[in-house]
Structures are given as C-alpha cells and as structure tokens.
Amino acid sequence: MTLQMLDSPALATPPSRAFLARAGQGARKAAARYGLLLGFLILWQVGSTQGWLNATVFPPLHLIFAALWDGLASGALIDDIAISLQRSGLAFAAAVGLGIPLGLFMGQIRAVEQALDPILQFFRQTSALALYPVFILLLGLGEASKVFVIFWATLFPILLATIGGVKEVDRKLIEMARTYGAPRRTVFLRVVLPASIPSVFVGLRLSATTALLLLIAAEMIGANRGLGFQVMNAQYNFQIPLMFAAIFLLALLGLAANFTLVTLQRRLCRWAEAT
C-alpha cells in the first residue's frame, strides 16, 4: 500500500486525471471480481430467451425478478422471509448461547473435555436430518421441532471450534501471564478468550451455513410457511419463476449472514490483519 503511494506521482497529475485513473482502477477490480458472475447471469438470460435452455425449467431472469418483486410487494414472500429468519435466528442464537460458554469451559478443563468428547463426536456424526423424525415425535410437527433440528446441527460446529480454539492457545502466553501473577480469571479473560476468537468465528461461519441448510430441509418436510416451503410449493404448483425467486432469497440470506460474521470478525480481530 505504502509502496504504491510512493510510486504513483499523485502530486504531478491534475486531480481530474487522478480521479479518472482511480475510477478506471476500481472498474477493473470490480470486473475481475464480479465479471464471471455477470457473464453467468447474461448467459442464463440470453440462453433462456433464445431457447438454448428449456425456458420452463430455467425461466429468463426478468420473469424471476418479476415474481420476486410481486412476492415482495404483496407481502407473501416477506412473511416467508420473516418466519425463516425467526426459525434459523432462534436456533443459531441458542447454539451460540450454549456452544460458546460450554466450549470455553470444556476446553479449559481436560477431564471434562475428555469425558464428553466421545459422546460429542458420536452426536456430531449423527446427521441432524436423520434425527428430525425423532424430534418430530418428541416435539410435534410445529415450530419447536424445526428450531430444535437447526439448533442441534449448528451447536456442534460452534462447540467443537470453541473447544479447539481454547485448547490451542499458546501455553507460553499463559505462562507469561502467570509470571506476572495473573490469577486464573485474568488469564482466561485476557489471554485464553481473545486467543480463541478466530477459531470461534470459524465455527460460527460453519454453523451459519449449516443453519440455512437445515432450515430449508426442515421447511420442505413439514411446513406451510417459510422460504424452504415456498421453493417446494412453487415447484408443485409449477410457478418456476417464484421457485427461483425463493432460491435467490435463500442465497442472499446466506451471503448476508456470512458478510455479517466476516465484518464482525474483522472488527474483533483487527490485530490479525495489520501488516
């Protein structure tokens, strides 16, 4: 960064030309980053309207966006978004609320970690979707079983990443803090906790992806509202543009979740990026 600034004769060029140069550079960057995605969308649109693709399965983009707009304007899709956000949000929040504190605790106390690890590994390997019928039997076909299956699937990535983060804290840093007379609590708050944050975020991002996956599956199986339901329902009713509109919203939801987590991580882990 510094080197570039030294190299570019910023003082010699008039401001307008510098501005143009900067705008050109920005455009090139955007093209390199989003060019392929744009090409894919154009190909879809052209392919669909020209008949290279089966237009009933892959309707042109303008129809999909029209369906999306209709759904949003009439409030039907808004309802679906709200209920889907509520289900995944509740489950994710519960998984964070339980997984991070439990992971911090388990990672510090070897005996607890060793006793619980086999059962955790066993639960983790048991697909949450396979357990969904069990949850339905226990909690009914309502909201509780849906939230619980998402919670179940999102808990383990968070829990295991947090345990891993705590266990991998550099012992030498802990020893350093101890030589200054730091009590256990201080060592935990000032060394173990900040050192585990990057690893916790790995778990959070993994869990956010899992939450959306399980959300869709749960809504496809036994729901009458929600984005996952809408994808299935639109397909049954052969409203293919609406189906793609719901899929598009789900993708957007995933991107938004990831973006939020990445931004939060950047803010909390500014030190890891400074060069």
């Binding site: 030498k172 840093l173 803090a177 030589t179 007379g181 000032r190 900040p194 030190w271 890891a272």
Partner: peptide
C-alpha cells in the same frame, strides 16, 4: 512481584498494541 522473566521468545499478546503489551504486567498486578 519481586521478579520478572524475559523469555527467549518475546511472548507478546498479538491482539494488544505495543503499549498495551508493555502495560500488561502492571495491569495484571
């Protein structure tokens, strides 16, 4: 408190600035 150790590795906390790292021992005390 009478003793302080300097290790072979600096053992700095990567999330703290230089000032915060240097102040760490005092803050802990």
């Amino acid at each position: 408190n009478q003793r302080a150790v300097i290790f072979q590795e600096p053992r700095l906390l990567p999330w703290l600035t230089v000032t915060q790292n240097v102040a760490f021992g005092l803050e802990v005390r």
